[in-house]
Each structure stands twice: as structure tokens, then as C-alpha cells.
Amino acid sequence: MNIFRIGGDLSHLISIFILLHKMRTSKSCIGISFKSQVLYLIVYVTRYLDLLWTFQHSTYNSLMKIIFIGSSAYTIYLMLNDFKPTHDPNIDTFKVEYLIGGSAILALLFPYKWTTSEVLWSFSIWLESVAILPQLFMLQRTGEAETITTHYIFALGAYRALYIPNWLCRYLFENFTDPIAIIAGIIQTILYSDFFYIYYTK
């Protein structure tokens, strides 16, 4: 495992910690897109189904997968229960049907194999690349975002951005390549790029 891969995974963990910390300390979920959070849960559940049969292959991967699914479900639980009064659906209006539909079409057209787990894996990769859009859309609508929310989005974006040099390293040193993940990862990073730019300049 190279430094970029570890950095990416660490960044992903940090983003989750920031999000949960923000909700618990402010006792609210203001500024957090519920739709994006639901998309992430769908992403993790469809991608990490392989926990059922690859659990023993890598303790690191399996542990991370459980953390990602668990924390994502917990975030949604908090938004639906404890902090429900602070959630305003009127500003969280992005049409996620298109994101889910588009990802499903791409997954069905170009999976590595036409098996349930491969199609779901591919679906999760495409969906992850666009899952932040409801959150960015919400940020744009409300204008000023809390600093903590921008830190969350930055850490989450850095995760997939760091996977790009990781793929380059793996291509050069391990002859490893994963076209679906790479193309979707680049799209994902481009979607964040405008946000990254604003984050750096503010």
C-alpha cells in the first residue's frame, strides 16, 4: 500500500469524524444534505457486499468497510431522529433520481462481469463519483457555509483525489489498472475541483 492510498483512506475517516463531531457538538444537522448521506449509504452497502465472502482477506479493508457502512448508517439515523427538527428538506432539493438512474445505466452497460456483485460494485463506483452533488448544490443555495461543513467536504474530496496518484503508482509499480474506478475517480475529483479552489482561496 502506498502513501497516497493510506492518505486517501485516512482522509475519508477524518471526513466522517468531522461530520459526526459537528452534529454532536452543534446538536444539529444544518447544512448537511440528507440526500448525499443516503447516497453514500447506498454506495457503501452496494460496494462492500463482498464483506460477506472476502472478510478474511484483509483485516484493514474489512475494518474500514464496516466503519464506512456503520458511520454512514449512524449519520442517517441521527438526521432522522435526534436532529430531525434541524433538517430543512426545502433546501435539499437536488434530483437524485438522475444520479441513481445514470449510475445504474453505466453499471449495467460496462461492468467487468455481468454478475450481481460486479454490477453493484460498478454502480457504487459511479454513484460515489456524483453523490456529493446534492451537498454542493445545497451549499450553493444557502451561500455561506459553516467552516466545519467545508472541512468535511474537503476531506471527503481529498479521499478520492489521493486515490489518483495511488492508481498511478500502482500502474507503474504493480501493473495494476482499474479503468472503471479510475474514470469515475477522475470525474469525482473534477466535481470537487471548483470547491477545492474556493476552499484554498478562502
Partner: peptide
């Protein structure tokens, strides 16, 4: 078709 390699990334 070759077996799909194990996904070793997150």
C-alpha cells in the same frame, strides 16, 4: 473470461 480479481481498494 478471467476471474475478476479481488477488489483490494475501498
Amino acid at each position: 473470461v478471467a476471474a475478476t480479481p479481488l477488489k483490494d481498494e475501498l
